[in-house]
Every structure is written in structure tokens, then in C-alpha cells.
Simulated scan of single mutants.
Amino acid sequence: MKQPFRIRWRWGLIGLTLLVFWVLVGLMPAPASAQVESRLSQLEFQLRQVRSQVSQIEARLSQPSLARPAAPRPATPTGEIPADPSLGEQFDNLATLTIELRQQIRTLEERVTQLEQQRSR
């Protein structure tokens, strides 16, 4: 049984309208993309800060010790002044801090990579 021309025309118009709507919705940027871009910018900024801090620490380590006045050390409850940590202890502390900073940098770089991949999709 054939449908009258007007009914087919209406269904065609409805289909065309839905198709145009679907295309327009597909072309609109997702609201989350602005949030992703904002977060990506924040992470890039944080990564630059961490890299700057690492560079500063590396620069300090590479320079010979300059004569700096020592900060006064607080006395213990018994009135004793605590002994300075040995050079080995200072090196261990610095090595631990450097490792932690590098781990934070790797984590931030992974997050930036993930966000860039999401952004490019």
C-alpha cells in the first residue's frame, strides 16, 4: 500500500530536520572540553613551576658553597643546640627530595599527556 505524497514528504522533512539537528549537535564543542583545556593549562603551569624549582636546586648543587651566614638554630627544651646533620645525612635528604620531585614531574607529565590525548579526540 503506497502512502500519499504528503505523508512521505512529512516523514522526509522530519528525517531531514533530525539529520540537520544531529549534525549541528555533533559540531558543537562539548562543554567538558573547556574544562579540560583549563585543567591542561593549570597542569602545564604547575609543570613549568616544578621544572623551574628543579633547575634552581640543580644550579645550587652545581655551585660551590658560598659563604653564607648560618641561620640561628633553635635550642632544644634542655637548652642544647642540636648538632648539624652530617654531610652524608644532608646528601641523603637532598637525594630523597630530588627523587620525590622527579616523581611529581613524571606524574604531571603523564597527566598532561592524557589530557592532550583527550583533547585531540
Results as ranks from 00 to 15, higher is better:
Trp9Arg: 15
Gln114Glu: 07
Gly79Arg: 12
Gln63Trp: 04
Ala34Arg: 15
Gln90Trp: 01
Leu87Trp: 00
Pro31Ala: 05
Leu16Cys: 05
Leu18Tyr: 05
Leu43Lys: 03
Pro72Trp: 03
Ser55Tyr: 11
Thr98Ser: 13
Leu108Trp: 12
Arg111Ile: 01
Leu97Asn: 05
Arg119Cys: 03
Val54Ser: 06
Pro29Tyr: 03
Gly88Ser: 11
Gln53Ser: 11
Leu19Cys: 05
Glu89Gly: 10
Thr96Pro: 00
Ala83Trp: 03
Ile105His: 01
Leu13Ala: 08
Phe45Tyr: 10
Arg111Gln: 01
Ser120Trp: 08
Leu18Asp: 03
Thr107Asp: 07
Gln117Glu: 07
Glu100Ile: 03
Arg111Cys: 01
Arg8Met: 02
Gln49Trp: 04
Arg60Leu: 06
Lys2Tyr: 01
Ala95Glu: 08
Arg48Asn: 14
Arg6Cys: 13
Asp92Gly: 00
Ala83Val: 11
Lys2Leu: 04
Ala30Glu: 15
Gln35Thr: 09
Gly88Asn: 08
Phe91Ala: 02
Pro77His: 07
Phe45Glu: 11
Ile81Ser: 10
Leu18Thr: 03
Glu110Lys: 09
Leu40Ser: 00
Val36Ala: 08
Glu100Ala: 05
Val25Ala: 14
Gln63Pro: 04
Ala34Glu: 10
Trp22Thr: 07
Arg6Thr: 11
Gly26Glu: 14
Gln103Tyr: 06
Asp84Gly: 00
Gly79Asp: 14
Pro31Trp: 09
Trp9Lys: 14
Gln114Ala: 05
Ser86Thr: 11
Gly79Cys: 13
Ser86Val: 01
Ser65Phe: 11
Phe21Glu: 07
Glu110Met: 08
Met28Ile: 02
Val112Asp: 06
Gln46Tyr: 02
Gln3Trp: 15
Glu89Lys: 12
Thr78His: 02
Gln53Lys: 10
Val112Leu: 06
Leu18Phe: 13
Val54Gly: 00
Arg73Leu: 10
Gln117Ile: 06
Val36Cys: 04
Pro64Trp: 05
Pro85Phe: 01
Gly26Thr: 13
Leu61Asn: 02
Leu87Pro: 00
Glu44Asn: 09
Pro4Gln: 11
Trp11Thr: 11
Pro31Lys: 08
Asp92Thr: 10
Phe5Arg: 14
Leu13Lys: 08
Leu13Val: 07
Val25Leu: 14
Val50His: 14
Leu97Asp: 10
Leu94Lys: 01
Ile99Gln: 09
Ser55His: 08
Lys2Asn: 09
Ser62Arg: 13
Leu18Ala: 06
Arg106Thr: 09
Phe45Pro: 00
Ser120Gly: 06
Gln90Ala: 02
Thr113Val: 07
Arg121Phe: 04
Phe21His: 10
Thr113Glu: 10
Ala67Gln: 12
Thr113Phe: 02
Gln46Gly: 03
Leu19Arg: 01
Gln42Lys: 12
